[in-house]
Amino acid sequence: MIVFDLVCADGEHRFEGWFGSSEDYADQQARGLLDCPICGSTNIAKAVMAPSLGRKGNQEPVAANPVEQGTEAPGASKPVSNEVAVPAEYKEMLGKLVKAQAEMLAKSEWVGDKFADRARDIHYGDAEEKPIHGTASQEEVSDLAEEGIAALPLPLPVIPPESKN
């Protein structure tokens, strides 16, 4: 995997992109598959990046000179972040969504990768009707839909109970 810093030329938004190789990046760029996660623009280019070079094995690490509080060394750069400020109402909405999903999952049984089979059993009356959640492939979900069995993805990722600390 290779990570490129990317920039959207329309809004000058900076973000990371992970690719299998430089050729994968070039192919996706040529086909117009890259878009800005902030504004949706497809006018994407690689941002200038500093190479990550390790120090020579025969050199001692140089300790950084501490800068006094409130002063800045001449020519020092200021910290830069590509973190997007999230409005308070979005944070509040996400908090409500987290709470609602947690309440729903507390009243539901985890069935793991047996979700499709258990959903069928419940639908056809071979098992007690109760809320369940688990994992299913896209093909399994499509098959359920063709049979008239509703299955919806959870809005937030779920950690399987056996994976929790």
Rank of each mutant, 00 (worst) to 15 (best):
S41F: 12
M49R: 13
E109D: 11
G70C: 12
Q28M: 08
K96Q: 06
Y25H: 12
S81W: 10
G134F: 00
I38N: 14
D27I: 10
K99F: 02
A88M: 15
S41G: 14
M93H: 01
E89F: 10
K107V: 09
A73R: 14
K91H: 04
Q29M: 11
E23Q: 09
V158F: 01
V86M: 15
N58F: 15
K107I: 06
G70V: 07
K107N: 07
L97D: 03
L154P: 04
A136F: 03
P74C: 02
P87Y: 07
F19E: 03
A100W: 07
E139F: 04
N58E: 15
E83T: 15
I132H: 05
K96R: 09
Q101N: 06
E23H: 10
S77W: 12
R118Y: 14
D117H: 05
E129T: 12
A64D: 13
A145I: 01
V98F: 11
P74A: 03
D27E: 09
D143P: 00
I149T: 04
G32C: 12
L105Q: 00
R120W: 02
D27K: 09
Q28G: 02
I44D: 04
P66S: 12
T71P: 00
V111S: 04
N43P: 02
L152H: 14
S22K: 11
V67T: 10
A30M: 00
I122S: 04
V84P: 05
G125A: 13
L33C: 09
P87K: 14
E109F: 03
A30N: 08
D113H: 03
T42K: 11
K96Y: 03
K107M: 04
H133M: 01
I44F: 08
G20K: 13
W110K: 04
V62D: 00
A63K: 15
S22F: 05
A63W: 03
Q138P: 07
V141A: 08
Q29R: 13
V48W: 13
A102V: 04
E89K: 08
L33I: 11
Q69N: 06
I38S: 14
P155Q: 06
E60F: 11
A127D: 13
G40Q: 06
L152Q: 15
H133N: 07
K78I: 01
Y124C: 11
A63V: 07
N58H: 15
T135F: 08
E139P: 02
A119V: 01
P66F: 06
P61L: 12
K56V: 07
E140L: 03
S22A: 13
R120G: 06
D117Y: 05
S137M: 03
